[in-house]
């Protein structure tokens, strides 16, 4: 990964040297993934919807520019930014040290916490998981969290996709799942999750979600931060939050 990051940093450096452009005032191109419900996804008619999209739209309104969304696969989303395919990434991206070497982040616009999900009648106690089987998606912070905090006697099962972990929770192969609480919230609201509930307190791993811009694009960064502060102050943010989650996620 370090090489990859180094390559990204190299690209960023070149971008810095060759051009330092303020973005055009009239439109702002925003990169997003479109495969991360309920934050960004494609509805049946092909339109982008979700919390990220709504936030971006609200920011553009405040900045008095027009949002143009560009869809990009997750793996290529930072290279796409550096290649000037778009000027900002609003795609539920966690602010990490690795990424900060390649891009700059705005202030966080929501924070992610982890939470256990288990069957309502199972009486799973996160403080005593001895002999329990816990599922998580491979290569996520939930998986690393489980590995870094060996819960006395609990067995960890790792899944390729979050959906498969939920399937096994529903079939009873795992006793509990550790996942992003916001993603789990969406599942619990669905029909399949009706016999399941959050257990224990949210685990704060300090995961903050921000908007990424090219390094050195300080003008855009400042404008986005100002707009973000504005929508938080005037209640727009709260409104959007309530549209998706009945609890504050900031």
């Amino acid at each position: 990964m370090s090489l990859k990051t180094a390559a990204l940093a190299a690209v960023a450096a070149i971008v810095l040297l060759t051009a330092s452009g303020p973005t055009r005032a009239e439109t702002l191109r925003i990169g997003t993934e479109g495969a991360y419900p309920p934050f960004n996804q494609i509805d049946p008619s092909g339109e982008l919807i979700g919390f990220d999209i709504d936030i971006a739209q609200a920011l553009c309104d405040k900045m008095n520019v027009e949002c143009v969304f560009v869809r990009q696969d997750w793996d290529g989303i930072i290279p796409g930014l550096l290649a000037r395919k778009y000027d900002a990434i609003v795609a539920s991206m966690s602010i990490t040290e690795d990424r900060q070497q390649a891009v700059d982040f705005t202030d966080p616009y929501y924070s992610n916490k982890l939470r256990f999900v288990a069957a309502k009648n199972a009486k799973v106690d996160p403080d005593n998981l001895k002999g329990k089987v816990i599922g998580a998606q491979r290569a996520t912070i939930s998986a690393s969290y489980l590995e870094d905090h060996p819960f006395k006697g609990a067995k960890v099962k790792l899944y390729d996709t979050q959906e498969n972990a939920y399937l096994d929770l529903a079939s009873g192969r795992v006793d509990a799942i550790l996942a992003d609480r916001l993603v789990s919230y969406d599942w619990l609201e669905s029909d399949a999750g009706k016999n399941f509930a959050f257990v224990g307190e949210p685990i704060d791993i300090g995961d903050k979600i921000g908007i990424a811009v090219r390094k050195g694009d300080t003008k855009l960064l400042a404008r986005l931060n100002a707009a973000l502060a504005e929508i938080i102050a005037d209640g727009t943010y709260e409104e959007l939050n309530a549209k998706y989650f009945p609890f504050p996620i900031y």
Partner: peptide, 21 residues
């Protein structure tokens, strides 16, 4: 492959990040 390609590209003088879909 993306790592190999990036290394190979760098050897050829291209300083970008090459990725494979």
């Amino acid at each position: 492959a993306s790592r190999l390609l990036t290394t190979a590209a760098a050897a050829l003088g291209y300083d970008g990040f090459v990725e494979l879909s």
